[in-house]
């Protein structure tokens, strides 16, 4: 699971109103080199919950010097976009779990795939 996906994932357990952001508990993290696409990264930035991204990167030990607040004019700032590219698309959680902040329900991550299946009672 890339942090881009994590930034978009919410808990959809029945009755939960704000199942976001999911808390990451990782036991294995991997970095996968990927071609840098500044256009895509710039396009995604406005859609991100910036705080959740920084927190997730911090939890995994990959925050480096990513600022707590989104900077202005990032489209022109290649160095910044590269940092975002790295945490968004290259850092991957391989094993661990995601925890719903509201219900406490845990979603296991195996082989890099979060299991978002619900029990029929929670659906």
């Amino acid at each position: 699971m890339k942090l881009l996906t994590h930034n978009m994932l919410t808990s959809h357990v029945k009755g939960v109103t704000k199942g976001y952001p999911l808390l990451i508990k990782a036991t294995e993290v991997k970095v996968n080199q990927l071609d840098f696409n500044p256009q895509f990264v710039s396009r995604m930035i406005p859609k991100l919950e910036w705080g959740a991204l920084v927190q997730a990167a911090e939890d995994l030990g990959y925050r480096q010097d990513l600022p707590g607040e989104l900077i202005a004019d990032y489209e022109q700032n290649e160095e910044f976009l590269k940092k975002v590219h790295r945490v968004l698309l290259e850092v991957e959680v391989m094993e661990g779990c995601l925890k719903c902040p509201e219900s406490g329900r845990e979603f296991p991550i195996t082989k890099g795939i979060p299991n978002m299946l619900l029990n029929e009672d929670d659906a």
């Binding site: 859609k47 082989k111 890099g112 979060p114 978002m116 659906a123």
Partner: peptide, 29 residues
């Protein structure tokens, strides 16, 4: 099926889920 996707080294990110339970993503993703 997802295991085959992993073997084939697809570029997308994968999630195990039932569409009948709803899509677990933020608005406007």
């Amino acid at each position: 099926m997802l295991d085959v996707a992993l073997d084939r080294e697809v570029e997308g990110d994968l999630v195990l889920g039932d569409m009948g339970h709803g899509m677990p993503f933020r608005a406007g993703t």
